[in-house]
Design a protein around this nucleic acid. Sequence first.
DNA 1: AAGTGGTCTAGACCACTCA
DNA 2: GAGTGGTCTAGACCACTTA
Lengths: 254, 254
Amino acid sequence: MGTTQLETVPEPKYWQLKTVLSEALDSEFTVGEILPNERDLAARFGVARATLRQALEQLELEGRLQRRRGVGTTVAPPRVGVPVGTARHTWPGGPADDAWEPMDSALTVPAGSVAAALDTGRDEPVHTVRRSRVSHGRPVAAELLYVPAASVPDLPATDASSGAARARAVLRELQRLELEGQDRAVELGSARADDARELDRLPGAPVLVVTTRFFTEGRTAALSVATYRADTCRLTFGDTGGVEIHDGPEVQAP
Amino acid sequence: MGTTQLETVPEPKYWQLKTVLSEALDSEFTVGEILPNERDLAARFGVARATLRQALEQLELEGRLQRRRGVGTTVAPPRVGVPVGTARHTWPGGPADDAWEPMDSALTVPAGSVAAALDTGRDEPVHTVRRSRVSHGRPVAAELLYVPAASVPDLPATDASSGAARARAVLRELQRLELEGQDRAVELGSARADDARELDRLPGAPVLVVTTRFFTEGRTAALSVATYRADTCRLTFGDTGGVEIHDGPEVQAP
DNA sequence: AAGTGGTCTAGACCACTCA
DNA sequence: GAGTGGTCTAGACCACTTA
């Protein structure tokens, strides 16, 4: 009735803050530059530190900032485009799959969910190969590759070899099968403690989980669960290099 | 050095809490069930509400929980596998692309980053088509499809038609071009206010941003930026339906 | 030792949904 | 109007990095 209509529902402070900071990052900062510390920033904007942190968290999630305990908050470089899956289907560890470094391997009985995806029995042994992916000198992904023992029956039984050598042997055996197809899914997850350590992040950090099933002779011959840093990676599919959409500060040498 | 070694560095409370809750969800709850409210849960575990919320946030990020203001926190159903991109390349809006519902369309000059990805000039007009994707009765994605006016020169100039009809007309014109290839990238983002409303989430909610470029005659004929709910969606690629990996509570009718 | 981000607390108020 | 999750505060202490 006669009441003056107030401004529409006010946006949360942390949301406005995020917008302000985002614009400042575009115009007033260069990649690698260190921001003022959180206490100073909060005081400057007249908000509690927790509120400021909510805004910083969002910006870090979007890959705009990088925060490191004991060091500070820096302006992040644009996300790196990481090719995931080549146009043609290939086994992990093959010549067209040189981005990954085999780390270790063990023969274990995996969790029930993995066994289900592999169509193996609950107690069937599975080779668990750990691989690591580095791009532009930074670790970007950690992978667990599950290969049922039945898929690589001719694997030499020399367990004495080192972990990486053993991993390579499993991958080598895998190449001998004929790959009939693969299946891929991407979803958001949070880093387990071991993956987090490998990715140089804290546990719970947001990651993109890429799950790939490899088929041969109608069976699932292998299952890959690859964990990519969501803050620094843009997963690209297909033949070319991918797309760059986001606005961001100009890259400039420190 | 006679000091007794304490337990290794204690994990954060919210992390332990998350683990405990996660196990409880698996064993003691069914999909759709309502959890006790945050104040009660915090009291029960002897932590501050903010700490409990940190654990709940993680579980929501992982798609295990769903929280709605004014209602409560419920156990989320397993993520739905959403097919993204068919095996063969197809234009948006074609017969093999029936998952999307055209909403609206307008002719504008897009942001510089979009213009750059389209290889259009800064001031070149672009049709911006808004589409919405629903799966299992729930909105899962919102898309902005950018089509340079130059890509659809024969578009009838009847701006009087309604938004959806205009959107359909643009898509129809697009089909007449010969699609030579496409380019796709997936990354983590946070929902803008308009996308959030369309996805029934709060602004800033985590989303998977799928960016696709469509090529014809060596040019970029269209650019799609699709925003998927990260909490409820698992993006699947390729021919088959995708993989289900996560453990979770059994689905059971309420 | 100093300075940083990370965790945690105890409380307050707000926006929203629903009976 | 009662009850829920969402926002915000002001402060404390901890873990980590660097000098």
